[in-house]
């Protein structure tokens, strides 16, 4: 038994390195996508202190909106790449309107309330978005418009380490786009005027207000940025499987990623995503059969819990200083 748990999986890893590479790659890709969802959380948490539970549903909602617009266009005889990109821009517009509404209707009246109340309010947003999305777009899974957005499909098989490792092209594209987006966000945060304002708000709401930064404006920008991240995430997830409300449960996986990396850290979200993604796939592949399979559903949380016991504020989170 002990042999099966502690030694056998590693022996297998060494014996079949190609399988290991394949598993690692799959873990890496799902890790990148978890990291993208977590990134949306972190953006909002940093700037407004709101633990935005609705990020997961925003991913689904944006993807559904995109596909919905495209379907409307192609029904009107306007299809192809141009239509897809018009739909993309319109969806971004919808996310902007959503950000404004959230700020206006939910955040502004609830300013200065305890964290848990704001957390609950984002549950309300989640419910509204689920109801709205299902009513407008229907509950059936939809096909993401991958080829219209110039996203590749198919796979590349690489012969390495005495075996065949297959990489899905869409996964490679997802990894590249995600990295580009993370670099873009980092530049936006560090080099632009708005980025500087965002960092100021993240440090202290009051100090930011006192130097003339409009909190309301910043919140709209942040929710819009999170909406765009959600849109990209939605496209990537949608391209790998269908676009449906089942994604919602996947979004819950972003929570362990988030606490693992620390709620306030952008690099933390990425590192956390990779750790959870890879750990989960390795656990499922090598240790799962011992426990009867399906451990993917809770393994991520167990990893996060272990890390938290060691560092209660997450790997990159700000140290929690408590005063009386």
């Amino acid at each position: 038994m002990l042999y099966n748990i502690f030694i056998d999986p590693f022996v297998q890893m060494v014996q079949m390195p190609d399988l290991l590479v394949q598993t690692l790659w799959e873990g890496l890709v799902s890790g990148v996508l978890y990291a993208l969802i977590a990134l949306g959380f972190v953006l909002i948490f940093k700037a407004s202190g709101v633990f935005n539970f609705a990020q997961g549903i925003m991913v689904v909602f944006s993807a559904l909106t995109l596909v919905g617009f495209y379907e409307k266009f192609s029904a009107a005889g306007f299809s192809g790449h141009a239509a897809a990109f018009v739909a993309l821009i319109l969806t971004a517009g919808v996310m902007f309107v959503l950000a404004m509404l959230v700020e206006r209707v939910v955040l502004r009246p609830l300013v200065n309330q305890p964290d848990i109340i704001l957390f609950m309010a984002t549950f309300g947003i989640t419910y509204v978005l689920i109801g709205l999305g299902e009513m407008v777009f229907g509950g059936d899974p939809k096909q993401m418009i991958t080829s219209e957005l110039f996203l590749p499909s198919g796979s590349v098989d690489v012969e390495m380490l005495g075996g065949l490792v297959s990489f899905q092209k869409i996964d490679i594209a997802a990894a590249i786009i995600a990295s580009a987006m993370i670099v873009g966000l980092a530049l936006f945060f560090q080099k632009t005027r708005i980025g500087r304002a965002l960092r100021a708000v993240a440090d202290s709401h009051k100090a930011a207000l006192s130097v003339g930064i409009s909190l309301n404006q910043i919140w709209v920008i942040v929710w819009f940025a999170a909406g765009l991240v959600a849109l990209v995430t939605g496209i990537m997830w949608g391209a790998r499987s269908d676009v449906s409300f089942a994604l919602e449960i996947v979004a819950l996986k972003a929570l362990p990623v988030l606490v693992l990396g620390g709620l306030t850290s952008v690099p933390g979200a990425i590192v956390g995503g990779l750790i959870i993604g890879i750990g989960e796939k390795l656990g499922e592949f090598y240790w799962g059969p011992l426990l009867g399979g399906g451990i993917e559903s809770w393994f991520a949380y167990a990893i996060a819990l272990l890390f938290l016991l060691y560092r209660p504020q997450g790997l990159f989170g700000d140290k929690i200083i408590e005063r009386i």
């Binding site: 939910v106 609950m120 549950f123 309300g124 947003i125 419910y127 509204v128 689920i130 109801g131 299902e134």
Partner: peptide, 10 residues
């Protein structure tokens, strides 16, 4: 129902 419950929570 979803929509209304969500709105009522807020």
């Amino acid at each position: 129902t979803y929509l209304i419950v969500g709105a009522l929570i807020i």
